[in-house]
Design a protein around this nucleic acid. Sequence first.
RNA 1: CGGGGCGUGGCGCAGCCUGGUAGCGCGCGGCCUUUGGGUGGCCGAGGUCCCCGGUUCGAAUCCGGGCGCCCCGACCA
Length: 559
Amino acid sequence: MSRLSQTFLPTLKDAPADAEALSHKLMVRAGLIRQVGAGLWTYLPAGWRSIRKVEAILREEMERIGCQEMLMPVLQPAELWERTGRYGIDELMKLEDRRGAPMVLAMTHEECLTYHVSREVRSYRDLPLMLFHLQTKERDEPRPRAGVLRTREFTMKDAYSFDRDEEGLARSYELQGEAYARIFDRTGLRWYRVESDVGMMGGSGAHEYMAPCAAGENEVALAPGYAANVEVASAEPQPTELPAALDTPEEVSTPGLTTVDEVSGALGVGPGALIKAMPVVIEGRGLVLVLVRGDHRLNEVKLRNALGADFRPAGAEEIEAGLGPVGFVGPVGAKVPVFKDAAIQGDSFVAGANRPDAHLRGVRPGRDFEFEELDVRTVEPGDIAPNGGSIAIEPAIEIGNIFKLGTRYSEPLGATYLDEGGVERPIVMGSYGIGPARIVAAAIEQGADERGIVWPASLAPWQVQLVSLAKAGEPEREAADRLYAELRARGTEVLYDDRDAGPGEKLTDAELLGCPLRIVVGRRGLAEGVVEATRRAGGEEAKLPVEEAGERVTAMLSG
RNA sequence: CGGGGCGUGGCGCAGCCUGGUAGCGCGCGGCCUUUGGGUGGCCGAGGUCCCCGGUUCGAAUCCGGGCGCCCCGACCA
């Protein structure tokens, strides 16, 4: 029963003032969601229908590759999380039960499932195994944002694979990758798969699935045949112009000039002719200097990966004590290890002199200072990708990821099996996540126009919005009633706007909600014996003879 | 965690600076009107002005504290 007059579908003329992202505004206005608190959202009936469309696709495609659905609790004893060392994560919601026992609200389910597998799986004969569930996740995000794009509670499809070795994991990973491609294709999204940071998890591989859109939180470096999260992207830099080389570095006075722009302006050279020296403290190693070209930005993820250790920017006192005055630090004569970004190539750079109000020019790496070379800069638009293409950078929403976990969880939780030789080995795991809410929001971000949502058919809450322009009791209403009954009999998902409202309101609401096909039954059309069908995407119109309308609508939906 | 902004009927906002009857538009209810793009009119309902404390004869308004929400950055297995 989907009569709009009886459906809880509250639409709004204006978006909430504090909404910024397009999907946030439209989901609220179209009556899909309402806010409960920061990062906490209720799905109203129409929004929930779309979420369930995504979930149905996820279930079908997981089952197709032999991944079995189950369900694990959100509330869990803290002990499991202590064993994997994740109890200390700030985002993890912690609480106590009535007896004071420490509990957590799960932010993901590696611990729980690995625990089960550790108790049930004994032999290589029990492997491989792939399991998933659709379950609520709780994360105490420091900053929820943009409607349902980043929330503190959300549903995730999380799947896990259990294999006896890396080769098995590679097969499971590949299977999941194939399922993911089918899933995202079926959602109608524009998407791509990018290389991603394996982070501190230390896994052996990871990919993210990205849906490009303005509200995206991630930046993706794209070139034909190349896609990578900017966090890990590498590329050839654009060349930079350097001044003439000198036999030996020459000190220049730069009183009070501490920024790249100030120094390059004062010396009449481009920012790319400067060396930006960043003092950082590496965990367990102490103060070092990291150099990037003046027109480049340090990429913290790449640096962390290149160093194989965590680091933090050095404080002013540490810099003064170990190097020189803040703002005038440089590699020449530095008493700490120097890491030079690979993009610094040439023989005549400007760098800090490690003295107040002074820089050096004509600095030549290798001659004037020793270094270790790393690739730690953030790629820029126009850089050349490894395969030769020119890089563009665009924002995108992460809608899914796949991750080779290895034995990160199986070892601490004792998930092992016996191989053919009777040797106990840790199970090799992978994890595979998809957020249905982000898929819905991304679809809205990508498809919407100035009048509202434009759903891909696979995610639309209803396939057809049938609009009767007549009011209850008027003769034209009967034709709409009959078409509604017929479409329902044909199994079509139809939302019937049978409200006693003006035509403007009904037509505007239909465009806001954005179902793929709008059928208008009104006096004007009926006088010619037709109803009017309009595709939301593209606006293509067709007049359907009243007596064949049901059949024609069905045909339009399948064709 | 750093920076900024905002809390006043359901939604969007004004009023606050300069203390004195709480307002506007939309929405909502009734009647009439209109009937292919949020029609027009009349009548009406609806507000602890985020909370606590202080100043004052009197606080939405001034002061102090707290809470909530949003945005930017940091963070985001």
